[in-house]
Simulated scan of single mutants.
Amino acid sequence: MSGAFETSTRRCDKAGCEEPGQYRAPKSPRNLEDFFWFCKEHVREYNLNWNYFQGQSEEEFQEFLDNATVWDRPTKPFGRAAQDQKWARHGIDDPLEILGANGTNPEVRAKMNLRKLPPTERKALEILEAKDSWTRAEIRKQYKSLVKDLHPDMNGGDRSDEDRLQEVVWAWDQIKESRSFRD
C-alpha cells in the first residue's frame, strides 16, 4: 500500500543517493506520464515541494477549476433560444407548462388537436365547412343546411351552384361511410 514498485531495478534519481528508486513522481504538471524514480525518503521530500499549479497564472488556474467542475467536458449554454426551438415545434411556449393552455400557441395547438384522417375525409370536411371534432350528427346538420342553400328548387331554379352542390353531396358520402366520426 506504500505505492512502491518492489520489482524496480532503478536507482534513486536524487544526486548522490544510492538507494533503490522504487517510488515514481511526475517530472512536470504538463506531462504526468514522465517520472522521476526516488527512494522513500526522497519521494517524500519531493512530494512536500510539489505544486501542480506552479508557474501558472491566475487565469490558467481559474480555467483549470472551471474545467474540473464539469469533468473537462465542454458545456453548451442553457440559453433561451435552444429552449424555444425545442418546445416550439410542439407548440409550447412554456416548457414547464406552468401557464397551462395559456402557454401554448393557439395555431399550433389547433394543428396538434387535428385527428389523423384520410385525405378524402379531410377534403370532405373542408367542402362541408365542418370541424374534425364534430360528430356525424353535427356534420349532417351542416350538410343539410348547405344542400338547402345550394339546391336549385330553393334558389328559384338557379342552376349556377350545381357544381358546388355535387361537391357537398360527394363530401357527405365520404363522411357518412367513415368510421372516423362518432354518431
Rank of each mutant, 00 (worst) to 15 (best):
E58Q: 10
E107W: 11
R80I: 10
D72E: 06
D153K: 05
Q174I: 13
L96H: 08
G100P: 01
I92Q: 05
P118V: 08
E60M: 08
C39S: 06
G156N: 13
L114Y: 01
A25K: 04
W170N: 06
R164M: 01
L165C: 00
D34C: 08
S178P: 02
E107I: 15
R164Q: 08
R179T: 13
L165H: 00
L150N: 02
E121T: 13
K148D: 10
T104V: 13
L146M: 12
P118S: 11
P29R: 09
P20M: 04
L165V: 00
V147K: 06
E19P: 00
K116F: 08
Q54V: 02
E97C: 07
I175S: 13
R44L: 14
P29N: 08
T104W: 02
N113R: 14
N51P: 01
S178L: 01
A4M: 05
G16A: 09
F78Y: 11
E41W: 02
V108H: 11
N49D: 15
F61C: 09
F35R: 04
P118C: 07
M154H: 13
C17L: 02
H42G: 01
F36H: 15
P152K: 03
Q174V: 15
A81G: 10
R89H: 04
V43Q: 15
K148F: 09
K131P: 00
A88I: 03
P95A: 03
C17N: 05
E138S: 11
T135N: 11
M112P: 00
V169W: 03
L114D: 08
E63F: 07
D72C: 03
